[in-house]
Design a binder for these strands. Structure first.
Length: 389
DNA sequence: AGCCTTTGACCAGCG
DNA sequence: TCGCTGGTCAAAGGC
């Protein structure tokens, strides 16, 4: 079965893979591989995020901070100039970000070139692309993420600015690299909450979260993990997953693995695509956990992997991937109106700050809509760095 | 003993 | 209606 993988027109989504794949990933370096895949991959070493980024954007003198760089990359239609800094994953054709759902299909190909790699764009379906290691669960549960959920903001009631403040603080604590700090500023509430709190009930009904795990991350020190470890499990999100299937998908050269949340009654599933190296190229979450994350002990197991993981299943993979890297976050909407609505709602609320920050030109959306998404991207990246460090 | 991964087969949706 | 593809099931085996 699954062999016919020839070429797929560009009608399908997840193409991120292409970017994050091999090209850049030399055998050994699980995570450094690609902080932002495409670009970083080229570099044989893993410089700091900023350095990497800077290299990626030779032209952009203006972009100094990570966030700036990122913003720059995303912004401008000229993005075409930008190397594949972010593996662009188009989960559904084009970008949700742009909102130009229209001929989404063919645009997919376009995106790959024009958009920053790593940026996952999901269109139709509400997808959210996260960097590898980041726990989707955390995101979902995190208050920040709540933006996607109906109850969103409710629990926190924190203003965007406040969130920002928090984030900043967090970043400082996290000792994230200066780059991270730089990017922090712009971080949105989403990020803030995400990093700071994690206890929110999940509210999304069935949102799909796409996690792109490019894999190279910020350059931490975790490059020693064997590929095997990397390959075992999907990103760690604090939940336990059981693999129930694997299949070679046509659009992708890599096999796609299907996981279910092991929690009884929990409908959450996720699809993980890995590159030949074993690196996760894309993760798509579907559904929402209807339960709390596993207890610390288990959780520790997963998360613990970040530091030195236990061993098997776990999350070694995620840990390694989590490294920091990923930069791709994409959020769009799919079936989840709620998410969408919320997201937009939020954007309206908190954009002010961001507006000046960057224009993600991924597509052109009015300032109104794009913000949340853009923000998420930035935030996400940033957060990842913080977490990793 | 329990849980997870692997893998082939089956099923459903779509063009 | 047929074929293709993606997603899921379930048995077998491993840790």
């Amino acid at each position: 079965m699954g062999e016919s993988q020839e070429q797929k027109p560009s009608s399908q989504p997840s193409k991120t893979v292409a970017v994050s794949r091999p090209t850049i990933t030399p055998p050994p370096r699980p995570f450094t591989d690609a902080l932002f895949n495409g670009g970083l991959g080229m570099m044989g070493f893993s410089p700091g995020p900023m350095t990497l980024v800077s290299n990626l954007f030779p032209d952009s003198d203006e972009l100094k901070t990570f966030s700036q760089l990122l913003a720059g990359a995303m912004a401008s239609p000229a993005a075409g100039k930008i190397p594949n800094f972010f593996p662009l994953t188009t989960t559904e054709g084009q970008g949700g970000v742009s909102g130009s759902g229209g001929g989404g299909d063919d645009t997919g190909s376009r995106f790959r070139h024009n958009k920053p790699a790593g940026l996952v764009i999901a269109q139709p379906p509400p997808m959210f692309t996260l960097p590898t290691g980041l726990s989707p669960a955390s995101l979902l549960e995190s208050p920040g993420f709540s933006v996607f959920s109906p109850i969103a903001q409710g629990p926190f009631g924190m203003t965007h600015q406040q969130a920002l403040a928090q984030v900043t603080a967090q970043a400082a604590q996290a000792q994230c690299s200066s780059a991270a700090a730089a990017s922090l500023a712009p971080v949105s509430a989403f990020t803030a909450n995400m990093t700071t709190n994690q206890q929110m009930p999940i509210s999304l009904h069935s949102s799909t979260v796409t996690v792109n795990e490019p894999s190279d991350a910020c350059q931490s020190d975790h490059r020693s993990q064997p590929a095997s470890l990397i390959v075992d499990k999907p990103a760690d999100d604090g939940y336990n997953w059981r693999k129930y299937g694997q299949k070679q998908v046509k659009g992708s050269e890599f096999p796609r693995s299907y996981y279910k949340c092991t929690s009884p009654g929990c409908p959450v599933k996720k699809k993980v695509e890995r590159s030949i190296d074993g690196q996760v190229t894309e993760i798509i979450y579907k559904g929402q956990h209807n339960h709390q994350p596993p207890p610390p002990s288990k959780h520790a197991k997963d998360t613990g992997s970040l530091n030195g993981n236990p061993g098997k299943q776990g999350n070694s993979e995620s840990a390694s991937q989590l490294q920091c890297g990923s930069s791709n976050i994409l959020m769009s909407k799919k079936d989840q109106e709620s998410s969408q609505a919320t997201a937009e709602h939020i954007s309206g609320t908190s954009d002010s700050e961001e507006a000046g920050e960057n224009e993600v030109g991924v597509d052109e959306k009015d300032e109104d809509e794009p913000d949340p998404k853009r923000r998420c991207v930035k935030s996400y990246i940033f957060v990842l760095c913080a977490l990793l460090n």
